[in-house]
C-alpha cells in the first residue's frame, strides 16, 4: 500500500503542476517540458520521503523505509509518466484517424460526401505541421531548401528502422 499511495501521490502532484503551468502558458516543446516537470517532482519527492522520519504517518500511510521501496516507487512513477507522455503525443498533434472520425461524426446522420472529405484532408493540416514539429524539436534542419536530419533525427530514425528490421516488417506504413 505504501508504494501505491506514495507513487500515486507523487504522480498526482506532478500532474497538478503540469496542469496549472499549461493553463498559464503552453510551452513550445511540450513533451520536453512534461518530462522536466515529472522527473523534477520525482527527484524532489524521493528526497523528501527519504528525509522524513520513519515514524511519520500521512493519511494513515507510513513513508517508505527501505531503498527497495524507494526504487519501487520510482519505477511505478516512471512507468506512469512514460504512459502519460505517450498518450500526450495524441493530444499535442491531431491524429489523422481522429480527424477522420470527428469529421464524419460532425457531418451528422446524413454522412460526409467522400469528395468533401478528400478536400478536407490535405497536406496543410496533415503533413506540413509535422515537418514543422521536426524542425522545432531539432530532429531536422534546413540546408538551403532541403530538409536534412540532425544527429538527433538520425538517432530517432535508426531506432525505428532497426526495430522494424528486428520485427521483419517491410511495408512502409504511415
Amino acid at each position: 500500500m505504501t508504494i501505491l499511495f506514495w507513487g500515486l501521490a507523487l504522480f498526482a502532484s506532478a500532474f497538478v503542476i503540469h496542469f496549472v503551468l499549461w493553463k498559464i502558458r503552453l510551452p513550445n516543446r511540450q513533451i520536453k517540458a512534461i518530462l522536466q516537470i515529472f522527473f523534477t517532482v520525482l527527484v524532489v519527492g524521493i528526497l523528501l520521503l527519504w528525509s522524513v522520519p520513519d515514524t511519520s504517518i500521512f493519511c494513515g500511510i507510513a513513508p517508505p523505509t527501505s531503498f527497495a521501496e524507494q526504487i519501487h516507487i520510482s519505477l511505478f512513477f516512471i512507468s506512469l509518466t512514460l504512459a502519460y507522455m505517450i498518450t500526450y503525443t495524441a493530444l499535442e498533434a491531431d491524429s489523422p484517424s481522429l480527424v477522420i472520425m470527428t469529421a464524419i461524426n460532425d457531418a451528422g446522420p446524413d454522412g460526409l460526401d467522400k469528395k468533401c472529405f478528400d478536400k478536407l484532408m490535405n497536406d496543410d493540416i496533415l503533413v506540413k505541421p509535422r515537418i514543422r514539429d521536426l524542425l522545432l524539436n531539432k530532429k531536422v534542419k534546413m540546408d538551403g531548401d532541403r530538409y536534412v536530419l540532425t544527429p538527433k533525427g538520425v538517432l530517432f530514425a535508426q531506432i525505428f528502422i532497426t526495430y522494424r528490421k528486428i520485427m521483419n516488417v517491410s511495408h512502409k506504413g504511415g
Binding site: 531536422v140 536530419l149 530517432f156 525505428f160 516488417v169
Partner: peptide, 16 residues
C-alpha cells in the same frame, strides 16, 4: 505503433 503509423517517424525514415 509509432514506427508504423506516426507521420513524424515516417518523414524521418524518408529523410534517412
Amino acid at each position: 505503433n509509432l514506427g508504423e503509423t506516426a507521420r513524424r517517424i515516417r518523414i524521418l525514415r524518408e529523410l534517412y
